[in-house]
């Protein structure tokens, strides 16, 4: 990785990833865009050198997750509730992808980063625990609970 921060190159490499994370937290395109920009702004404000593109990506994922949590926390303090952009889909009738996405978006905030990191990025429990500074058992429990919620929402066994 180069020493000088080429923000355009970094942005083009990871904008989709960062946006996905932000969207999963914020639930709307506008808020996800704002959070995505805020994430890259943190990198502009505090440029750093990464060991690899994977390292860069992982840093941005965690950064985006933290940005979104901050925004949501701030919003909850000021009692501002964002209107959901998407109407919750009926899991039995809607497109399975839409239904799953809706279910993911409706997960409590504390589950969102672990679900994204595990189910989309493929990180293992221990790796996620290290990334988020959590106990591995905490991550395992959150994944288990999130899975149960998703199954329930999507009409599974649990």
């Amino acid at each position: 990785m180069g020493d000088a921060l080429d923000i355009e190159a970094v942005f083009r490499r990871h904008v989709k990833t960062v946006y996905r994370v932000c969207y999963s937290f914020m639930g709307s395109a506008a808020d996800a865009e704002d959070a995505t920009q805020a994430t890259f702004m943190r990198l502009i404000d505090h440029p750093r050198t990464f060991e690899s593109e994977q390292h860069e990506k992982a840093w941005l994922i965690v950064c985006a997750s933290n940005v979104c949590k901050d925004v949501l926390k701030s919003a909850s303090r000021t009692r501002v509730t964002a209107m959901p952009e998407r109407e919750p889909a009926d899991p039995r009738q809607a497109d399975p992808i839409d239904a799953t996405l809706d279910a993911v978006l409706r997960l409590p905030v504390r589950y969102k980063d672990v679900v994204y990191l595990h189910y989309y990025e493929g990180y293992k429990t221990g790796e996620i625990a290290e990334m988020l500074g959590e106990n591995p058992s905490t991550v395992r429990n959150r994944l288990r609970d999130a899975r149960a919620l998703l199954r329930k929402t999507l009409g599974g066994d649990e």
Binding site: R42, H46, R48, E51, S52, Q54, H55, K57, A58, W59, V62, C63, N66, E121, G122, Y123, K124, E127, E130, M131, L132
Partner: peptide, 9 residues
């Protein structure tokens, strides 16, 4: 993809 991450904000 899994990645080796050293720091996160």
């Amino acid at each position: 993809h899994a990645a080796k991450v050293t720091v996160a904000p």
